[in-house]
Simulated assay, not measured.
Amino acid sequence: MAETPEPSIYEKAFAKSDVTDAILVVEEKKLHVNKALLSCHSDYFKTLFNSDFKEKSMEEIPIEDVKLEDFATVLSLVNPIRIEPTNERIAELLKVADRFLLPSAKRQLELFLMTSTHYSHEKIEWADMYNLDELLKHTLNKFPNKNAFFFLPSSFSQLKEKTKATIFDRFLVVQRKEDPRANHRSDRGKRPGFG
């Protein structure tokens, strides 16, 4: 007689309980969730559970094109039992949080990234891609001097205009700290009472 395999940490975090009322199936594994909780945190799930889609009446709702570990980790960030994100999976976790419209989970991932050991250029690219404004500011505030800005990769030309403006603003702040004369020069030509 074959033994039943031990449930993974992902299945344990989403075990059936007296507060779960829906089952999401990812990679043939069942995750028991609370519809109201997920609907509160995600417009995706609010629509899925409350609109006139076929999934609304299904006992088990399949979730396609996502890895169990990524999906469960992201969902856990808005659930009572939390699975800690890892540096190795952060890019995938951000995609999942974005795809399933989970701003609370995305914020948790942003806070995680602020203390992670990822390179600054990676953090800036993720901040740009997923609109993580606090991560962008936090990362730029770590640049020790204006020379650090010159090591940004050439792919930065692909960033959104808003991100480029934030980088440039921070560069000017750092430059003014390094060269106080820049402040004096920028005051030249101003008429009294203006600016």
Rank of each mutant, 00 (worst) to 15 (best):
Y119H: 12
N141V: 11
S116M: 09
L136W: 13
F49R: 00
L109R: 02
S8Y: 06
P144I: 06
E60L: 09
K29S: 07
H184Y: 14
E11K: 09
A105F: 10
L94Q: 05
R107A: 14
V19S: 12
N147A: 12
T20Y: 09
D18C: 15
K177E: 09
S186V: 10
P62K: 07
L94M: 09
T163D: 13
P144T: 06
D21H: 12
E110C: 06
V66A: 12
H118M: 08
F49G: 01
A182K: 13
A2W: 04
D70P: 02
L102D: 04
L38K: 02
K190I: 14
D169F: 14
L68T: 06
I23G: 04
L136T: 03
S42L: 01
V173E: 08
D18T: 15
A22T: 07
V66Q: 02
D98P: 04
V96G: 01
M1V: 13
S57F: 10
P5G: 00
F112I: 11
L48V: 04
K160H: 15
R188G: 05
Q175D: 08
P5F: 01
V74W: 03
E11F: 11
N183K: 06
E6R: 00
L113P: 00
K123R: 10
S154T: 00
R82T: 10
